[in-house]
Every structure is written in structure tokens, then in C-alpha cells.
Design a protein around this nucleic acid. Structure first.
Lengths: 334, 334
DNA sequence: TTGAAAGCGCTAACAT
DNA sequence: ATGTTAGCGCTTTCAA
């Protein structure tokens, strides 16, 4: 049943119905009551796609990601979850599966954007988000907010939430040094990651040198963490503390330490990064850097709606730092 | 730029453009080439909402859930992720944030459905999915697939993926009995859950009695698991093995056991349920029941598209069982 | 193989 | 306060 048919059935005009539903038009309370009442009775429900076509708004926000496996990271999953409530509070749904892998894919994205199929986008990038993509989006006057480790050059319609690494590096450095560690290791992900540099610099500031032989860049999996730790501990003067770039690496390292008969945190302190679910339940529970998912999500959503409401708005970049969560896996040097 | 303007610019009719893009119409190869070529050149991209209005298809599937906190379960997050690839393979996106909490919310859902804003729905229900909801959906000829622990009465346009509990209960019972345990406990979620009954029955079949005092229904959190285990082990004749309804309960229990000086699995075996990420990395690694997320997701999506392609199809219910993953936390009785 | 015209169901000026 | 009318941008008969 369309609005015309429904209008005839209940004896008012389509306009009145539209007004009654949106609440935006001038209708008498009595008429509005009647319309809403009859809607249920007849089971009429407006066609969203028609509305979207004519209003140019969809009440949809897309979550754009660079690769198809982005949800493999548990942290990202939790982030996705965190977007839901703030969006729902504004009457918005979240669109998933929008990848921006290549130029080919950009077009699919731009199609959805130019055609007003989504009102805004949140762009997730573990690595750097291609400037070309952001420029393309900006050019189509599409409000979007990028979330990544990197700063995004200021451009119109594009907000940015930066997940800072520097502060976390400092907090870990300070903790370990305070606990008396002087021989410290780092277990990393890949060569593009900035964390090892930051960590080395922060240790330097505290008078400790992160030697190259104590930096292991192995990969993403627990096995990589185990492998890295094994190498590190097989050196003549093995470190007494290790900062692992992710909790998964940290857990792999702890497992390997146990296998090698090294007590954590008795003989080796381990600090992770992410505060994934369950790491507080391990034995020992994991000391790690936590990023507040809700904070990230509400910041991004707030920013996005600012841009959506005022297309001219120049939104400031927002930096969000990690916070050290003290648990059992790191302790004073013996 | 709309199709009309674009048509004039490149000197063909809107019809031809539509045909060239969809590939459905009869157009010469040369013309199609031209159109696609010029699309990039001029940056024309069709309006999706207009297309959706006229075709009645949106290439969107909604993920419907009963409460707002559904993504709090890590298992559910992983399920969401698993839907993405099969949907993308068919050119579909996934719509998140569609709750069906109350009758009020049903209307929001039905609006999206009746208005063809989504082509189909996947309904997630940890508990039983309200029959009324499914009937409403079926009545609007809306293809949907329910995923839950419960069987859904057969009705048109509604498929069902049942996450069976019985088989898992049997596998755990068999494992523990084979390992020589005779005094066995259960750590449960809530009174609505069928698992304790199934587990008791399966133990019964093997000649073991699950005594009421060994069944603790405490809640969802690790603390609940710890609390339950403490009570259970404080009894005169504490069990030598415990089946926990979820991995989180199991981890809470293991933590508490350690705190009580009880070795796992030396003096107490613990089996969990879900195989959450990281539980394989704990010390000891967790023996648990695993449900194949990809299998569930592809089953549901396959079923959904069957219903979408052939509205008359009566889709068979599909049962998916858990599989025991043997790790370290459960072992032979000493 | 291509084009003209009608209409998808709604909203929003503009009357009344 | 309510109704009339003209599109929104596309697809799809139908005709050429």
C-alpha cells in the first residue's frame, strides 16, 4: 500500500500523512493522532527508498575499511560495536562491507556516496589511509571521519581521529624503567609501524638504550611472538622486560617464556597493547595499553555529525591516547 | 549530475545508459564501451536510491538482533564478521543496528522491510526468537533466516539455523567420562538455558549422575564462574571436572581454582564453550566446544538467498553442532 | 539497436 | 490546517 491509497482510505491527503509522520508539517493534533492510529490499523508504512530519493538523506553511515579482513582484529570488532549506540541515538544504522581496497573499489564507494546512499562515512585504517581516497570523498562533499594511527592532512568534509602511539610508548617506558628494568626488548608487527621508534625514543629520554638486537619484528600471530621471544632470550644478555606491540604477541611470548622455564613476571615482565577481552583473565593477567573504544567511537560519530550538519565546518583533528592498565604480567626487576 | 544530463552530454538517451550499466538491455558493444568510458570521464554515478525505489531491490541485508548489547558476546562479533564475505560475494552489504526489542521496535523493523529498504534479514537470537516477530516478517513476505538455539516452527519465507546444544553436551560428557571422571560439575548461565538438562541426560546415558549440588547457575561473567567454582569446591566431595557453559565462565573458574591452590588440569579438569579468540593461548590452553562461524554464516546466507530468489521455497531447517577442541585444561583424573 | 514516455512512492512548494 | 501539483533520478514497457 502506498501513501496515495492509504490517504484515500482514511480520507486525508498524502501531504497530511507525510506531515503527520514527520512531525515537521502543520497538522492538528487530532489529525496526527488519527493518521498514526490508522497506520497501525492498515499496516501502512512509508517507503524508505522513496523518501531517501526525494530528501537525499538515508540515515545510513558506512564503515569503510581498506581490506576485507579488517574484522579479524578483535580490537576493530569492539570498535564497530562501539559505533552502534551513538549512531542509534541519532536514528542511524551502520553499513558494513564497504571496502576501499583499490581504485576499482573506490568507485563502488563513490557510487554509494555520490548517490546519497549513505550520509557519511567512517574510515578505518590500521595503516595509512590513502590521501587519494580522502580527496575523492572530500571532492564529492561527502562527510567522513578517518580513524587511524596517522595524521590526515586537513581537508574539507574530512575529520580525523588519530590513535596516538607516542603516549603509550612513554607510559610503558616509564613503567618498566620505574620497575628497575634496564635491559628491555620490543616485539613488533611490521616495519611500517612507528611504535618501535617511539618506544626507543622514550626509553632514550629515560636514559635507557633499546638495542637493535632486542627489537624483534616478527609478525602478527602468537607464534610470531613466541619466536621473537625465543630469539631474544637466547642472547648472551637477555632482557628482563619486553613490550609487545599487541596482546596476541604478548600472549605468544608469555607462553614461550613458560615453555622455556622463565617465570612471568618473576624473571621477565611482559607488557601488551590493546587490552583485548579475556587478557584480564589470563594467568598472569596481562599488563597492557588500553584504548577506550567508546571514546574513539563517540568522538568519531560526534565529529561526523558535525560535518553532516554543517558541511562548511572545519573539524579539528582529535588525538586519542592509550592508557596503561596495570595487571600482573609486569613487575619489578628481581 | 543525473542520468538525463549525462545522457545529453554524451549524446545518447537515458535508456541506453541504463541498459549499458545494467548489462541487461540490448545495446551495441561499442555504445556500452562509450558509456562506461564517459562515466569515468564525467564522474557520473547512478543514484542508488532512485534505482532502489524503482526496482524494489536494495542489495542490503539487515542483521536483526533482540537487544542492543548483542555484540557484547565475542562469539556474536565473530559471527557478524563471518557474514561479510558471503554477502560481498553476492554484491550485498550488511546493515547493523536493527534491533527488535519490543513491539515498538518491531515497527521500525517492519518499516524497513515493507519499504524494501532491505532485501532480507538475518535474525540473531541467543534466547528464543519471538514467534510474533517471525510471523510478522513472514506476513510481509520478507525473506529471513533465524539463528538461535531453538527450533523455529516452519513458516513461509523464514529459514532457520539451529545451533544445537545436545551434541556438544554429549561430546563433553563422553570426554570427561572417558578420562575417568565420575564426580562432575556444571557451571551455567541462566535458568532458561537448556544445556544443564542436556548435559545431565548425556551423563546419565553414560551411567553418571549430575547431582544438583554440582550445578551452579551464576551468570555470565568471569566473577560468576569464580563464585560458582568456589561454592562447588567447598563441598564435602568436590568434583574433579567441570563443564562451564561459556569460555568466560571457564576462565573465571580456572582463575579461582588457581587461587584456591587447585591445579588445572592436574586436580580439576575444566571444559568451556565457544572457543573464543585467545583461549588457545592461555596457560593451560582451554579445552572447549567450538562452533564453526563460517559454517553458520554461509549456511544462513545460502538459505537467505534461496528464499530471496524463490519466495515460494520452503527451506529446510539446518542444525549445526559444536565440535570439541581438545587442549590442556581437561585431562585424566588422577 | 536506440529513444520517448510513464511511473516507482514520496516530499515540499505553493495554493486554498 | 489541509490539499494540489510538480518533481526526486531512475528503470522499463513500448514504439521506432
Amino acid at each position: 500500500m502506498d501513501i496515495k491509497e492509504f490517504a484515500q482510505k482514511i480520507g486525508v491527503s498524502p501531504t497530511t500523512i507525510s506531515h503527520a509522520i514527520s512531525g515537521r508539517g502543520r497538522v492538528s493534533d487530532a489529525t496526527r493522532e488519527l493518521v498514526l492510529q490508522k497506520m497501525k490499523e492498515y499496516g501502512y508504512t512509508p517507503n524508505l527508498n522513496a523518501r531517501r530519493l526525494v530528501t537525499g538523506r538515508s540515515f545510513l553511515v558506512a564503515l569503510v575499511h581498506m581490506d576485507r579482513e579488517f574484522l579479524a582484529h578483535i580490537f576493530t570488532m569492539e570498535l564497530v560495536r562501539a559505533f552502534l549506540a551513538p549512531l542509534k541515538a541519532r536514528g542511524y544504522d551502520l553499513l558494513l562491507n564497504v571496502t576501499a581496497e583499490s581504485t576499482v573499489e573506490y568507485s563502488g564507494l563513490l557510487e554509494r556516496v555520490d548517490s546519497r546512499a549513505v550520509d557519511g562515512s567512517i574510515i578505518l585504517g590500521e595503516a595509512e589511509i590513502p590521501g587519494e581516497l580522502l580527496r575523492e570523498l572530500g571532492r564529492s562533499y561527502h562527510p567522513c571521519v578517518a580513524i587511524s594511527h596517522y595524521r590526515v592532512g586537513s581537508m574539507p568534509h574530512v575529520g580525523s581521529v588519530v590513535l596516538g602511539l607516542r603516549s603509550g610508548a612513554r607510559q610503558v617506558a616509564e613503567l618498566l624503567v620505574k620497575q628497575g628494568h634496564t635491559n628491555i626488548g620490543f616485539l613488533g608487527l611490521d616495519s611500517a609501524d612507528q611504535m618501535p621508534r617511539f618506544f626507543a625514543e622514550e626509553l632514550q629520554n629515560l636514559g635507557i638504550r633499546l638495542s637493535d638486537s632486542n627489537v624483534m619484528i616478527e609478525g602478527h600471530d602468537a607464534e610470531d611472538g613466541a619466536e621473537g621471544l625465543r630469539k631474544m632470550m637466547s642472547q648472551p644478555a637477555p632482557p628482563t622486560a619486553v613490550f609487545a606491540r599487541t596482546d596476541v604477541l604478548a600472549l605468544g611470548a608469555i607462553g614461550e617464556a613458560k615453555a622455556m622455564g622463565i617465570d612471568v613476571p618473576g624473571s621477565l615482565s611482559v607488557v601488551g597493547h590493546d587490552d583485548l577481552p579475556l587478557v584480564s583473565l589470563m594467568q598472569p593477567s596481562l599488563t597492557t595499553l588500553r584504548r577506550d573504544r567508546m571514546h574513539i567511537a563517540t568522538s568519531a560519530v560526534d565529529m561526523l555529525f558535525q560535518l553532516m550538519e554543517d558541511p562548511g565546518a572545519m573539524v579539528a583533528e582529535r588525538l586519542i591516547d592509550s592508557k596503561l592498565v596495570l595487571r600482573q604480567s609486569a613487575g619489578p626487576v628481581k
